[in-house]
Design a protein around this nucleic acid. Structure first.
Length: 244
DNA sequence: GGGAATGTTCACTA
DNA sequence: CTAGTGAACATTCC
């Protein structure tokens, strides 16, 4: 269930745990959890689709993959893959992967690429696209977490539709103005996605993701796996231009 | 009940 | 060595 906005949404629910001390860390993930116990949770951050629990000299990332979920002060019947306990309270993760990092998030992640962060740097990403990604298809590049951290299948499909660009368009063939507009659409839609989560209306309000017909010209959508990425892609062949 | 899904990694093959 | 493929994941939703 997680693209970047979903992770940020979860992070926002955890603010009250900031500054609290971990009484127990559990779960079946193999990562060594003993180092976390009795430490104060300094901060909770996100990078793309990763939730980051920051301690003094290290941090732990939690990734939900496709099936993962999080519960606060509730449990499922199955065992948690990772859990942080704070006395009576607890945060439980299911089917989540964790990773232990030394240092600070900034040492490992470039926040300029996180589409939901104030640090997102449009010029940096534009330069990366034009300099190193020119021969690739934009639909593939949008899913590259090193360039568009937090973007998932829904955001890429909706953003390309809003920008009127066909996902198989070569990056180098897309006019710069259109690329800049696409970046804006990605950021704008990611923020809207976050808002839509509050009322659980992401899929309902999507323009073409999960739909059959283009809302604008009522033509049938083209739905297939496009590019090199094995993900279902929705395209309106009339509204979205292919730059070759 | 079955298929598909907002994701990524890793084993395996050519 | 590289690139592609497919499975796996204590799942969940229609």
């Amino acid at each position: 269930m997680p693209e970047g906005p979903s992770i940020l949404f979860l992070k926002n629910k955890l603010q009250r745990f900031k500054g609290k001390t971990v009484s127990e860390a559990s779960g079946y993930v193999e990562m060594d959890k003993s180092e976390i116990v009795n430490l104060k949770l300094i901060d909770i951050e996100t990078y793309g689709k990763n939730l980051l629990f920051v301690f003094k000299d290290f941090f732990v990332s939690v990734h939900l993959g496709l099936f993962g979920s999080m519960l606060v002060n509730k449990r499922k019947k199955v065992n948690a893959s990772f859990a942080l306990h704070f006395g009576e309270s607890e945060i439980n993760f299911y089917v989540a992967k964790t990773k232990f990092y030394k240092g600070k998030p900034n040492d490992h992640f470039n926040f300029k690429t996180d589409v939901l962060k104030p640090e997102f740097d449009e010029d940096f990403v534009l330069n990366e696209l034009q300099t190193n990604q020119g021969d690739k298809m934009i639909g593939d590049v949008l899913m590259d977490q090193n360039i568009f951290a937090g973007v998932g299948n829904i955001i890429r499909i909706e953003s390309l539709y809003h920008a009127k660009i066909h996902p198989d368009s070569l990056v180098k063939s897309i006019p710069e103005k259109k690329l800049i507009f696409l970046l804006k659409m990605v950021v704008d839609y990611s923020e809207e996605f976050l808002n839509l989560l509050k009322t659980d209306k992401v899929k309902e309000t999507a323009m073409i993701y999960g739909k059959m017909i283009c809302p604008k010209d009522k033509s049938e959508l083209f739905i297939e796996e496009l590019g090199k990425i094995k993900r279902k892609t929705y395209v309106c062949l009339k509204c979205q231009k292919l730059y070759k």
